[in-house]
Each structure stands twice: as C-alpha cells, then as structure tokens.
Amino acid sequence: MAVLVTGGAGYIGSHTVAELIDAKEEVVVVDNLSQGHRQALLGGKLYVGDIRDADFMETVFKENDIESVIHFAAYSLVGESMQNPAKYYDNNVYGTQRLLEIMKKYGTKRIVFSSTAATYGEPQTVPIEETAPTQPTNTYGETKLSMEKMMKWFDAAHGIKYVALRYFNAAGAHHSGRIGEDHSPETHLVPLILQVPLGKREHVSIFGDDYPTEDGTCIRDYLHVSDLADAHLLALERLRSGGESSVYNLGSGKGFSVKEMIDVARKVTGHPIPAVLEPRRAGDPAVLIASSAKAKRELNWSPRRDNLEEIVESAWNWHRQHPDGFTE
C-alpha cells in the first residue's frame, strides 16, 4: 500500500516525501519536473509525467496500490496567475479533476491537499481562523479554493475524504542538509535575502515601510518546511483513522516583519545585506498571520522548529552548499 505524492519533487513536497520515508511508508512520486528536481527526492519511486495525462496516471495507479494521496502539484506564482489565469485553471483545477477521477476509478478514498491561506484574500481579522470568509484576491488563490470545493463535492458524491491545509510561508531546509528551496524564478523572501550574501544580487528590496506595523514593513507568518511536512502526515493519519473531511490553517501564531527577517539573516550570515526601499506592491496586506488552534486541537500539530534564527540558519546552510540550487 503506497502513498502517492503529486508534486513530490518540489520544495514542500520533497520534505514531505522525506518524512514519509522516515515513517517507513511506501512512497510513489508523480512530478513533471517543471518546478521540481530529481535531486530533491530522498527516496520513493518517481514517475515523471503530468497529472492531467490520463494514460500516464492510469499507469501509475495500475503499477502501484495507492491507498492515499498527498497533493502538491500546482502552479503557485501570484503575479503569473494574474497575467495568465488560463494556465492556472488548466494545471491546478483541471489537474485536480483528473486526479480525483483516477482516485475514484481505483477506489483511493483519502487525499491531503496542500492549499494556501491565499484563499482568504484580505483578512478582516488577524490571526485568521478557518471560519473567515474566503475571498481570494488573485487567480492563484481562487484556483486553490476551487480545488478545495471540488474535493468537497467528490466527497459528497464518492466518499473521497480530504484534508485541506492552508498556510502562508514555508522556509528553512531539511536537517540532513540535502534538500532545500530552489525555485525559478525565486519569489520567496528568505532565499531572496540569502542571495545577497551568496553574491547573486547586490541588495534585497523592501516594498514599502509605511504599513501600520511596528517597523512599517509587512508582517508574515513563517513555518519551517519540515513542520509543514509533519502536518501533512498528521492529516493523513487523521483520515486513516476515520476522520471526516476538514480544512486546517497552519501558522506559527506570530508573525515577523520584512525588516526582522533581514536582521536575522544578517546575524546568521555575518553579511551586511544591504536593503533598498521600493514602492509598495499592489494588494500586499499589512499583516498575515494564521491561527492554527484547530490544527493543534484536532491534528495534535504544532510547530516544533519555531525559532526564526534556526529556520534561517537551516536555509543558509543549504544555500551555502548549493549556491546554484539543484543541478537536476
């Protein structure tokens, strides 16, 4: 009996695969390698292909006894999603439809979904709870919400139980030092900051310092990527034990400002890391923090690696060893 991880060669997917391997699970990975990397996999059986390809997915399910799915495969660049919404609907929403259809055909009744707190849009209250209105402000968040809703109706019609995990920012790297964050293009704050001491860029940009926060810069929720991986395994165990479909927010319960993140990186790297102030970006809320009270209560999950300096240090250790990212 195997766990299928779609998008398992990506950043959070590969860390989840590593945790599954440590838990002695049989792991099958499907990834088209458009964003993922072969080197990011510490185990499992890799099938290179696209979840939208029915014949390909048929092969995966025929050759393996898939008892559960953890679904990461999706495009996730907010800006790109606004410029090319069709690409996001085709890959994210249609891809999920094809995945659920093959699960139905082969009787696979459990799926853990890597969703996003972008489903909430501009929050009315912070920290954000699962009962908050879902009003995405970009195509990416809208497609993820559509994927969640599709799972709800597949559950109602076919009994495929799901857990959707909504979170903001993953950071850090695996304790082994073998896998870390490598995106192209890179849009995440921690690796962008670390590109300065790596000599990849001259400075880091701060987009606005006049927000209603203590230091004027945006505050965001950061979680160590391995804590996120742990949450996916706990969600899978909940479904295996007969738990009902549900949605959970994952957060640290506290946020860090852009300036705080840069200061911590300066301390960790010993580099001055010049910062340049630039105009605000449209649609950037001042504060985004998720409440994970429900996840703590029902999944018994809480972040174990919540020291910001340790998170940044783990990322720095990986980037120093892999200054150009993965080679394949």
Score class of each variant (00 low, 15 high):
Leu250Ile: 02
Ser81Trp: 01
Ala132Glu: 09
Thr96Cys: 10
Glu122Trp: 11
Lys152His: 12
Ser252Tyr: 07
Leu223Ala: 01
Arg52Gly: 04
Tyr167Ser: 10
Arg240Cys: 00
Thr131Gln: 14
Ala295Met: 05
Asp306Ser: 14
Gly159Ser: 05
Glu181Ala: 14
Ile66Gln: 09
Ala164Tyr: 06
Ala282Ile: 12
Thr108Ser: 04
Gly253Cys: 08
Arg320Phe: 11
Leu299His: 06
Leu194Arg: 03
Ala286Lys: 03
Lys267Ala: 08
Pro123Glu: 08
Glu63Gly: 06
Lys105Thr: 11
Thr59Asn: 01
Leu100Cys: 06
Pro191Tyr: 06
His15Lys: 02
Phe207Leu: 09
Ala73Leu: 09
Arg52Gln: 08
Gly49Glu: 06
Leu192Asp: 06
Phe154Val: 03
Gln124Val: 13
Lys200Val: 02
Leu233His: 04
Leu100Asp: 02
Leu4Trp: 01
Leu165Thr: 00
Glu298Asp: 15
Tyr75Lys: 13
Ser302Phe: 14
Thr143His: 02
Glu181Val: 14
His174Lys: 07
Thr137Cys: 10
Leu99Thr: 01
Pro123Ile: 03
Val60Lys: 01
Glu142Trp: 07
Ala117Glu: 13
Glu25Asn: 11
Ile66Met: 03
Arg166Cys: 05
Ala315Met: 09
Ala9Leu: 01
Tyr89Asp: 02
Arg281Tyr: 08
Lys87Arg: 11
Leu233Glu: 00
Ala117Arg: 02
Gly79Ala: 10
Ala157Arg: 15
Arg297Asp: 12
Glu202Gln: 11
Asn317Thr: 10
His232Gln: 07
Glu63Cys: 04
Glu181Met: 13
Ala229Trp: 03
Ile160Arg: 02
Val204Trp: 08
Trp318Asp: 02
Gln195Phe: 14
Lys200Leu: 15
Leu236Lys: 08
His319Met: 13
Ala293Phe: 03
Arg280Lys: 11
Asp182Tyr: 12
Glu181Gly: 05
Thr327Ser: 14
Leu299Met: 08
Val48Phe: 09
Gly10Leu: 00
Phe326Pro: 04
Lys254Tyr: 14
Glu328Thr: 12
Ile12Asp: 05
Tyr211Glu: 03
Ile219His: 03
Val3Asn: 00
His203Asn: 14
Glu181Lys: 14
Ser246Thr: 10
Asp182Arg: 10
Lys152Ala: 13
Pro323Phe: 06
His37Leu: 04
Asp22Cys: 07
Asn32Ser: 03
Phe56Lys: 00
Lys294Thr: 04
Gly172Ser: 06
